[in-house]
């Protein structure tokens, strides 16, 4: 994880002239505008009455700011046939995320601990096997998993989704903790052993208290991933048990008559808020997770 270098801009020739600075800043602002546009459009539209949505353009400020679309999206918008808004699905996602993130993070921490501090013959092979699970196209497990969840009585339930996310989240959490603990000094484990601590004690008293940063990275990464999941939600749930991404997709695609874009945008914003909030607060850790999932070493 080379993210340590992140906060220190490097020195590359101080003599860059004025014009090149103007060009550099101009380009950066142009790109920033491009990246921000969808979010701005969503926000502006969600606060417009429908008449303004159709009369104005995407970047026009609302003449009359209104939160009516937010209220409607939360409590009245139609998802499929029921018109109770997305609040129920929001809570589905919350329940799903909290349990799945908790369990997968804890198990990943344990796995990382074992794979680095209690090494045995073939441990790297096992790690490789687990690691590959991060990168499979999940289409390959959809059919068997649907059958399995049905047999296990978990079909179309939040517990079923939690299970799926734990299973396929383990790969990432194991990867993160393993790469973090591999840099954790072995001597500390040895010292604790001589002091009389055993397997669990060493983990809970020595490693875990030092794992703050990687726990944050893992929790944020898992939270974002699981909250944003659509494929599993769409494949393994129906009706009321769907997570918010699936519900949002339904709202956007099933409305009949005049499309209520402002309500769609408000619903999208509601679905985005938790991850957006996490990103604003812990963006640094999110980036670290992103990087750790791709480049190690």
């Amino acid at each position: 994880m080379s993210s340590k270098n992140w906060d220190s801009p490097q020195m590359v020739q101080g003599s860059a002239n004025r014009w090149s600075r103007v060009i550099i800043y101009g380009l950066l602002i142009f790109f920033a505008a491009f990246y921000l546009m969808p979010l701005v459009v969503m926000l502006l539209t969600s606060f417009k009455p429908l008449s303004e949505v159709y009369a104005g353009n995407i970047l026009k400020l609302p003449a009359h700011w209104t939160t009516a679309s937010w209220v409607k999206a939360w409590g009245e918008a139609c998802v499929g046939l029921s018109c109770d808004g997305i609040k129920g699905y929001f809570w589905n996602s919350i329940k799903m995320v909290v349990s799945a993130v908790g369990v997968s993070t804890f198990v990943g921490a344990m796995n990382g601990y074992i794979l680095t501090k209690w090494r045995f013959k073939g441990d790297n092979l096992l790690f490789g096997l687990i690691l590959f699970g991060c990168f499979i196209p999940f289409q390959i497990v959809l059919i068997p998993m649907a059958a399995f969840l049905g047999k296990a009585g978990l079909a179309s339930s939040t517990s079923g989704l939690v299970f799926v996310h734990v299973v396929y989240g383990l790969c990432f959490t194991t990867l993160y903790f393993r790469n973090y603990y591999i840099a954790f000094p072995d001597e500390l484990v040895k010292a604790a052993m001589i002091d009389g601590a055993r397997f669990f004690r060493i983990f809970f008293r020595i490693l875990l208290p030092c794992s703050g940063p990687i726990i944050t990275v893992t929790v944020i990464w898992q939270f974002t991933n699981i909250w944003n999941d659509f494929l599993f939600g769409a494949s393994f749930t129906t009706g009321d048990t769907a997570p918010i991404t699936v519900a949002l997709n339904n709202i956007v695609n099933t409305s009949t008559g005049e499309r209520e874009y402002n309500v769609h945008m408000a619903a999208a914003m509601i679905a985005a808020l938790p991850t957006l909030l996490v990103y604003v607060v812990g963006g640094r850790y999110f980036v670290r997770g992103l990087m750790a999932g791709s480049v190690k070493g």
Partner: peptide
């Protein structure tokens, strides 16, 4: 015997002080 039962104490190169 497990290290903790050998009645030994060790000082490590990196000192291995528990950071927490």
């Amino acid at each position: 015997l497990h290290p903790s039962k050998r009645d030994i104490a060790m000082v490590f190169q990196s000192y291995a002080l528990y950071p927490n």
